[in-house]
Design a protein around this nucleic acid. Structure first.
Length: 453
RNA sequence: GGUCCCAUCGUCUAGUGGUUAGGACACUGCCCUCUCAAGGCAGAUGCACGGGUUCGAAUCCCGUUGGGACUACCA
């Protein structure tokens, strides 16, 4: 156990921003790397934004990502740590006493009802672990308001007081706070305390370089589980924004990152969020995930998409069918969010047919071949090996490529031109379902063609 | 406007004076193939610009340009 104490201090805004999550991640990594303590503190002094739901969004986001904290409020309402309370809204008396202290030492004064900090007019150097020494000329700066007319303390004061009271050793936060830091250092000094070490990490921008605000796509952590992303993938991707294992690897376990992570190696340039790369990383994790681990995830997503009825029991009588279908689809996709689109036809005969594919595949010739194959499928064993054998020998006998049969069948049984491996799909669906769907397609599209002629 | 930060392929990055500037995503072509993925192979694309320093600069310095942050009695 080292004496490192770092904190993540979000304010409840109704969502956990992906950039905030990355800040939390880097604090967490540093704490775990050094064997220090990771603290969660809720900066909820803005009463307007402070709702239980907004705080819950922070807990939910961190928990989903797998970022745990050693001190602070827990999601179940309990508190860990002896430096609390960890909600700023409950620390008013502490702030008041510090304001008083500054007032009585003459370092603050009343101004039209508010309290101003007599900012030292000097050049202050911020020794930043990531950015190096950064100088701020405060000789011309106006004094800083630390308490409003109504007596409530402002951010700069509460932030400094809490970091001081909670024994924070390293402040790891977004670069947007770099220019605030000279004020914070001045406050620490006025309070007779040594400022913590500072590490300002680069910001995450949109793909086009603009600021990622809460309304932008991908800004809210909650979007990721909703879209079927895996927390391990999001964490892995976030680590790669502003930090690198430096050995040309993209996929890396949190255990390894914890071992290698350190502050001086963090990049100084802002990074842009690339959803394509996250998608790819997610695919890497998704393909490594066991089928059984995928089941609950698939169940949730398929039920939300109404592909499965709400009372569908994944361990009930359709257990094997569900798993078999999931297994052959899983290896074709990168994201659980693709599951509804890829699996809906397994569970209903009432699907639509891709129009372009119909025009291309259900030609008179295509339907003739489909009929021929259908009649060939009634007797032979209905398994992958035999199915493939039947299709290939049938095609060979006619001097055709197997695709001549494959495409019409795929379209007939799924309505799609793309999907899982056909022979596996047929085996999973079973003879009855397959024949039924082929007959249905045959009837419908033969009639349509007769009518067209 | 002022202050501060930043600048290697489209994007994320490796690189700390001497490299054919490496990897990954995305992109293109080919192979494989029942489609789509995966996989394999090949390819295109980059040191923002201009000055220095140096025998030698992506690497160090200055300037320009561009991007970002801050500039609240918000956090």
């Amino acid at each position: 156990m080292s004496n490192v104490r770092v904190r993540f201090a979000p304010s409840p805004t109704g969502m956990l921003h992906i950039g905030s999550a990355r800040t939390a991640l880097f604090n967490w990594l540093y704490a775990r790397h050094t064997g220090g303590t990771f603290i969660l503190r809720i900066e909820d002094t803005d009463a307007a934004r402070n709702t239980p739901q907004a705080v819950a969004a922070i807990f939910a986001g961190l928990q989903w990502l797998g970022i745990d904290w050693d001190e602070g409020p827990m999601a179940d309402g309990t508190t860990r740590g002896d430096k609390g309370p960890y909600f700023q809204s409950q620390r008013r008396a502490i702030y008041d006493s510090y304001v008083q202290k500054l007032l009585s030492s003459g370092k603050a004064y009343e101004f039209e009802g508010a309290i101003k900090f007599r900012t030292p007019k000097e050049i202050i150097t911020v020794p930043d672990v990531i950015c190096g020494d950064v100088q701020f000329d405060r000789t011309q700066e106006a004094d800083l308001v630390i308490a409003r007319k109504d007596g409530s303390p402002v951010f700069h004061l509460t932030n400094v007081v809490d970091d001081l009271e909670m024994g924070i050793t390293h402040v790891i936060r977004g670069e947007d706070h770099l220019s605030n830091t000279s004020k914070h250092i001045a406050l620490f000094r006025a309070l007779g305390a040594e400022p913590p070490k500072y590490a300002h990490i680069p910001l995450i921008l949109n793909r086009d370089g603009s600021k990622m605000s809460k309304r932008n796509e991908g800004a809210a952590v909650a979007e990721y589980p909703a879209r079927g992303y895996l927390p391990e993938a999001v964490m892995n991707y976030l680590c790669l924004l502003g930090w690198s294992p430096k050995d040309n690897r993209e996929i890396i376990t949190m255990q390894e990152v914890i071992e290698k992570f350190d502050l001086p190696q963090v990049n100084r340039a802002n990074a842009r969020f690339d959803m394509d790369k996250l998608f790819w990383i997610n695919g890497m994790y998704f393909s490594e995930m066991s089928l059984e681990d995928t089941v609950p995830l698939a169940e949730k997503i398929l039920k939300e998409a109404k592909v499965l009825p709400a009372d569908f029991d994944v361990n009930g009588e359709d257990r094997n069918y569900f798993r078999a279908a999931l297994a052959i689809v899983k290896e074709k996709i990168k994201l659980a969010g693709e599951l509804p689109e890829w699996m809906s036809f397994f569970f209903t005969d009432e699907f639509s047919y891709e129009e372009k594919a119909v025009a291309k595949v259900f030609t008179p010739e295509g339907l003739k071949l489909l009929k021929q194959l259908r009649d060939d499928l009634t007797e032979a064993p209905f398994d992958v090996v035999n199915l493939e054998l039947r299709v290939k020998s049938l095609a060979a006998a006619l001097g055709l490529k197997s695709g001549a049969f494959v495409h019409p069948v795929r379209l007939a049984v799924s309505g799609r031109s793309v999907g899982p491996s056909l022979y596996h799909m047929l085996e999973v669906m079973g003879r009855d379902r397959v024949l039924r769907r082929i007959d249905k397609a045959l009837e419908r599209f033969s009639k349509a063609q007769a009518a067209a002629v």
